[in-house]
Amino acid sequence: MTTPSSPPDDSSALPDDVWEKFQHDSESAIRKTAPKEPSARARMVTRRLREQGPAEPVGWRTGSAWDEMEAPERPAHSRLWQMTRSLLIVIAVGAIVLFALDPSGAMSLLRDKDGGPPATATSAPRAVEPTTTTR
């Protein structure tokens, strides 16, 4: 009978270097797969968790914490400001796109029919001066 630390009786079956490699590989594999005893702290935590019983954790994984949260109600003026701001952004983006696609067309919308600057509501109408020909 052979022991694991000594080669078999029939030494012609395996060379010594092959047998030593087998022993070394087997020992390292056994040590890696051997069960390890948990530490005292790990045993205490395990016992405490068993005493508490099975419980589903509350948190981001379960979603229950998000369900229980209520979003604070925003004041009406805040919602109005957000809507106004959104509308202004949409108008500004539209104007930029219009100008980028057709700059001369966009400028013609801003000009008056006669090619002058746009008339504003605050400007007074221009008085036409009578033309007199005196010679």
Rank of each mutant, 00 (worst) to 15 (best):
M83I: 10
P103M: 12
S104E: 11
D10H: 02
R74M: 15
E73D: 14
Q23M: 00
G115D: 10
F22N: 01
P72D: 15
R31I: 02
K32D: 11
R50D: 13
S108C: 00
Q23R: 06
P57L: 14
S12F: 06
K36W: 01
A42S: 09
L101S: 07
W81R: 12
L80I: 14
T133N: 08
M107W: 09
L98D: 12
Q82Y: 06
A55R: 12
T134V: 07
A42W: 02
L49S: 10
A65T: 07
A100K: 04
R43E: 10
D102T: 08
P15N: 14
Q23S: 01
K32E: 09
A42Q: 15
P7A: 04
T33D: 06
I89F: 10
P118G: 09
H77D: 13
A127L: 10
G105A: 14
A65C: 07
R48A: 14
A29F: 02
A40L: 09
I91N: 07
P117C: 00
R43S: 10
E68W: 08
A106N: 01
M44C: 03
T122G: 07
V45Y: 10
D112S: 11
D112I: 00
E56Q: 08
A119W: 08
S86D: 12
L14V: 03
I89A: 14
T133M: 07
D67K: 11
Q52Y: 04
T133K: 09
P15C: 14
V128P: 00
V18C: 01
D9I: 03
E70H: 13
P54Y: 07
T2G: 00
G94N: 11
F99V: 11
S108Y: 03
L98A: 15
A40F: 08
I96T: 15
A76T: 13
A71D: 13
P38E: 00
T134F: 06
A119F: 05
T131A: 06
I96M: 09
A40E: 13
S6K: 03
D112Q: 09
G116F: 00
E27N: 01
L87D: 13
G53Y: 03
L109I: 05
P118A: 14
P7E: 01
P8N: 05
E20N: 06
L88S: 08
S78K: 11
I89G: 08
E68D: 15
V128T: 04
P35Y: 03
T46L: 14
R79P: 01
L98K: 12
Q82A: 15
W60R: 13
R43D: 06
Q82D: 15
S104I: 13
F22H: 03
S86M: 06
P72L: 15
L88T: 04
P125R: 02
G115R: 09
M83Y: 04
T84R: 09
I96V: 15
S86C: 04
L101H: 03
T122V: 09
S39R: 07
